[in-house]
Design a protein around this nucleic acid. Structure first.
Length: 818
RNA sequence: GCCGGGGUGGCGAAAUCGGCAGACGCAGCGCACUCAAAAUGCGCCGGGCGUGAGUCCAUGCGGGUUCGAGUCCCGCCCCCGGCACCA
């Protein structure tokens, strides 16, 4: 083959080889992965699965190609690596497309999946397609429903009437996590509050454990985001009596019980259940008007700090008794107090809280300081530490101790206690849309909400449905779907018509890959033991507080059911940065800065495109896609091609390839370390250097055969994870056995890397003045001697007082002179 | 406002432990090959002064520690991402 190639080397034409090798790999099933392989420990690599929008974009390649290289690297390192792929195929776009274009979501989705599967295959990744999951298929969502039932049975799924985030454009409720700055995460429409019966998952039950993520091998910023989102706060809760009303009392939550003597008013959330009962007749009209207005405002307006403060609250006409000093304080309603946090009611201490301060100013309420601010304090409310004042038996105590005393006092009085609160809310999973997994519940007048028996799953989505965006689930319009016998009493029942948030599907998909065809259970215990948890997860950090948090919740619940090993779903997680358009902005059709991967692949080939994405810059940073730069990577692969297919005349004299083996092994060492640390850009750069070294030798004429062949062999092996096609082709041409992707990762030879002489920098007062060649372990004596032979340097030292000499063997020699 | 990540040539970047700043690549310039172009190869490529050897300046800004700082410390500025009435 080599001889043949020399006579007609041919140019590097990726189109000629890439599809051919993919077909071969496919045919031979070299990426099919068994649950157990003798002598090869299992390792689970995973990259986030795409939504089948119908077109794979650069972002997918950017996320997946390096993940694939990493998985391949570990495979070569001797692991039995599972690297699966699938489709998160439920969700709004399919339904919106159906409404707009008259195409059924099922057909739209299936066509997109088909197309994207083809695009993903063209990536040349080692995906094991036998394990593909497709979350909108009944075989999959049957188990999504099964999970719902397990959560229901464990009281982790419940239904309640509550104010929920409602997106008027998507016509559905949203989880807290899906509301960004008061807007729908998906369509940017302002979200309003609507009171509805909704299903929730009790994520808060695991709040404490979810918070404890310190030991996870995850990017710090993602862990911090999760901790902030969960937002643990420690304080106290206590009861306040409404003045003159033995039947009316409410609870307040505070993190600062030490400041209670400074309470000058109390505030209830406008939605607080007590509002009606305590409002004084003369305030009724004003209160009603205020409550109505708050209910109508969007989240954005409500959270806005702009606008007249006077409109933010209203006096109820009632008073509450501050239990600490028995003083009556007026009870207000204010939009800044939320029903969904704490008790929906607060004690207001303007002296120590900014929001209370602003409110007190606006309504002319008194302000009492209970913590002595430092002399140079210039602000309004003082939140820092200091001795308590105006607080009777707390006076003089500092914050921590005063809080402690106040809580003890509350407990002794029997009116309050220590309390931990979380910002995290339970996960609202009901969606009033069609294209999702139906919630497997039947509502029966006699029995209430009855779970569908497991053997009747899946509750299938009816195909024949009207997609009217009414704000009610389209399923509700299907008589056939809705009317059903109660599984418990056999009487007339009605199916739940809401479907589940698609994040439910992605909360457990990684489990299914381990056992994708099991029709008895979502995953067998053997498969779970074999593969879980995921060893290396990669994907965007925009999922920090959604998918990545939900999946952790889910896994912990599954663990408590005895279904999965360990406590965490993703042992290691790495978030790549974001790839931007050439203009440095987010790629989007409206900006016209979208780079189509198919076009890049067509023009340059899969390997070039893959390697270029890895070469662009540090993977965790992201950045603009520079359309010009890719040619450099293509040139690299062309040089590699030429060097291998058209080698120089080979001799049998090692001196005909000085340093080649040293370079090859040094590069091998570096590339292995770089892959391991996901520094793909520098790994590619190092391989370019080795290729350049080959190129230079080649132009010189005679090259030692053994060195040349070894260097080529190593270069192909180390490049294989990054550029799987060209390396397979060249590997075959140099007579390597099929397949290069089943070869072990070569070990570098440290003795070859070590050099006899190295360049050491000679400095005078820290400035480089000469370079000397000495042995890496040369004595200081010898190095100084060598340096002094340099005329320029010795002239700079001569006649000066030598204060000190710093010698770092193999690095530098510094003469400090005066 | 709070939390996290950044700021290095014309551009993307590198410098693993405090030790040669700019590896690798893009663009640019010059040259070879060519009728020509493409492709390919070779050379140059942070700035100033100098014919040159060399030398001075230079990693957002200002200080500091050190024989030596892109890297460590203190104080600022700017960009990106996240959170933001959570009592």
């Amino acid at each position: 083959m080599t001889t043949e190639a020399r006579t007609d080397p041919g140019r590097y034409q990726p189109a000629d080889i890439e599809a051919r090798w993919r077909e071969r790999w496919d045919r031979d099933g070299i990426y099919r992965v068994a649950d157990h392989v003798e002598g090869r420990p299992n390792r689970y690599h995973l990259t986030m699965l795409p939504y089948p929008s119908g077109d794979l974009h650069v972002g997918h390649w950017w996320a997946m190609a390096p993940s694939d290289a990493l998985a391949r690297f570990y495979r070569m390192r001797g692991y039995n690596v599972m690297f699966p792929m699938g489709f998160d195929s439920f969700g709004l776009p399919a339904e919106n497309a159906a409404i707009k274009g008259g195409r059924h979501p099922r057909d739209w989705t299936d066509a997109n999946v088909e197309r994207m599967r083809g695009q993903l295959r063209a990536m040349g990744a080692m995906f094991d397609w036998d394990r593909e999951v497709d979350s909108s298929q009944p075989e999959y969502y049957r188990w999504t429903q099964w999970w719902f039932l397990q959560l229901f049975n464990r009281d982790l799924a419940y239904r309640k009437k509550a104010f929920a985030n409602w997106c008027p454009s998507c016509n559905t409720t949203l989880a807290n996590e899906q509301v960004v700055d008061g807007r729908c995460e998906r369509c940017d429409t302002e979200v309003i509050q609507r009171e509805m019966e909704q299903w929730f998952f009790r994520t808060t039950r695991y709040a404490e454990e979810l918070l404890d993520n310190h030991d996870l091998d995850w990017p710090e910023h993602v862990k911090v985001m999760q901790r902030n989102w969960i937002g643990r706060s420690q304080g106290a809760e206590f009861t306040m009596q409404v003045q003159g009303r033995d039947d009316a009392a409410f609870r307040v939550y505070t993190t600062r019980p030490d400041t209670a003597f400074g309470m000058t008013f109390a505030v209830l959330a406008p939605e607080h259940p007590l509002v009606e009962a305590i409002t004084a007749p003369e305030q009724r009209a004003a209160v009603q008007e205020f409550v109505e207005r708050v209910r109508r405002t969007t989240e954005i307006e409500r959270l806005s700090t702009e606008g007249p403060a006077e409109k933010r609250g209203v006096f109820t006409g009632a008073y509450a008794i501050n239990p600490f000093n028995q003083q009556p304080v007026p009870i207000y309603l204010a939009d800044y107090v939320l029903t969904s946090y704490g008790t929906g009611a607060i004690m207001a201490v303007p002296g120590q809280d900014e929001r209370d301060w602003d409110f007190a100013q606006a309504y002319g309420l008194p302000i009492v300081r209970t913590v002595q601010p430092p002399e140079d304090f210039e602000g309004d409310a003082y939140m820092g530490d200091g001795p308590a004042i105006n607080s009777q038996w707390l006076d003089g105590l500092h914050k921590a101790e005063a809080i402690e005393r106040a809580v003890e006092w509350l407990e002794k009085q029997g009116i309050g206690e220590r309390k931990v609160n979380y910002r995290l809310r339970d996960w609202l999973i009901s969606r009033q849309r069609y294209w999702g997994a139906p919630i497997p519940i039947v509502h029966c007048e006699r029995c209430g909400a009855v779970p569908v028996p497991e053997d009747q799953l899946p509750v299938e989505l009816p195909y024949d449905v009207e997609f009217l965006p009414t704000g009610q689930s389209p399923l509700a319009l299907s008589e056939e779907f809705v009317n059903v016998a109660c599984p418990q009493c056999g009487g007339p029942g009605k199916r739940e018509t809401d479907t589940m948030d698609t994040f439910m599907c992605s909360s457990w998909y990684f489990m299914r890959y381990a056992d994708p065809h099991n029709d008895q259970a979502p995953i067998s215990s053997e498969s779970a033991e074999a593969w879980l948890p995921v060893d290396q997860y990669t994907g965007g950090s925009e999922h920090a507080t959604m998918h990545l948090l939900y999946a952790r919740f889910f896994y912990k619940a599954a663990r408590d059911m005895g279904l999965v090993p360990g406590d965490e779903p993703f042992t290691r997680y790495f978030s790549q940065g974001q790839i931007l358009g050439p203009d440095g902005r987010r790629m989007s059709k409206s900006r016209g800065n979208v780079v189509a991967p198919d076009g890049q692949v067509q023009r340059w080939g899969t390997d070039t495109f893959r390697a270029y994405l890895m070469f662009l810059g540090p993977w965790d940073q992201g950045g603009p896609y520079d359309v010009e730069g890719i040619v450099g990577v293509h040139r690299w692969l062309s040089r590699l091609w030429t060097a291998v297919t058209d080698p120089p005349a080979l001799s049998e004299r090692p001196e005909d390839a000085p340093d080649l083996l040293a370079t090859a092994h040094a590069v091998l060492k570096k590339v292995g370390e770089d892959y391991d640390h996901k520094h793909f850009n520098t790994a590619i750069a190092a391989m370019m250097e080795l290729t350049n070294a080959l190129q230079r030798l080649r132009d010189q004429g005679q090259v030692d055969r053994a060195s040349w062949e070894e260097a080529v062999r190593l270069l192909l092996l180390m490049a294989a994870p990054a550029v799987p096609h060209i390396t397979e082709e060249l590997w075959a041409r140099v007579g390597g056995g099929y397949s290069i992707h089943q070869q072990p990762w070569p070990a570098f030879d440290p003795s070859l890397i070590a050099r006899d002489v190295v360049e050491v920098v000679a400095q005078v007062n820290g400035k480089v003045r000469a370079r000397i060649m000495v042995a890496p372990d040369a004595s200081e004596e010898a190095a100084r001697h060598a340096a002094m032979e340099d005329e320029h340097l010795s002239s700079l030292v001569a006649g000066k007082e030598l204060v000190r000499v710093v010698y770092v063997p193999g690095r530098l020699l510094n003469f400090v002179v005066k």
